[in-house]
Amino acid sequence: MRVMVLVKATEDSEQGFNPTPETMAMMEAMGKFNEDLEKAGILLAGDGLKPSSEAKRVAFDGAGRSVIDGPFAETRELVAGFWLWQVKDMDEAVAWVKRCPNPMPGPSEIEIRPIYELEDLLPQAGG
């Protein structure tokens, strides 16, 4: 089972990266965690994202397209980073996230979303 593990943005992450002793220690702990994920054969991809002030959105309305410049208002709805993992089930993904160092200086959340596989999109036999 593949899952997308989303590190939710915070006010701190939306300020951009500031190399303080605290953030450098956090980065070191996260690097160790990523090494553990790699050794376990779980990590497929992952990275941190720059603040939404450097982002764009493209809004679709029928054939129309419009570009919206960041920053975006609802910080708690934004993503600050992600991993793509291959795990046996959701319980394994939750167990790994519980081992993760806090990715932010203060309170934070990590969301785990299963990824559609081809068999999920095919008509079911007998249906």
Rank of each mutant, 00 (worst) to 15 (best):
D36I: 05
E14I: 00
E92W: 07
R113P: 02
V58S: 12
G106N: 15
C100T: 06
A80R: 04
V79S: 04
G16M: 10
E109H: 04
P105W: 00
F72K: 01
W85Q: 05
I112S: 01
P21A: 08
Y116G: 14
E77Y: 12
L44V: 11
E109K: 03
G81F: 00
A63T: 14
V94P: 04
E74V: 01
A40E: 12
I112C: 02
I115K: 13
Q15H: 08
K56P: 11
W96P: 00
A55Y: 08
A55G: 14
D91M: 15
V87F: 02
G70A: 10
R113A: 04
S66Q: 06
R76P: 03
E109G: 02
I112V: 12
L121D: 10
P105A: 04
G46C: 09
Q15G: 07
D120Y: 07
I42T: 11
W83C: 06
E111K: 11
P114S: 09
V67S: 05
G64H: 15
G31Q: 13
M26W: 04
D61L: 15
M24Q: 03
E14Q: 04
K88H: 15
V79E: 04
N34P: 10
R99P: 02
G106H: 11
R113I: 03
V97H: 01
L118D: 13
E14D: 02
S66N: 06
F33R: 02
R65T: 07
A73C: 09
G70Y: 10
N34T: 10
S53E: 15
P21G: 06
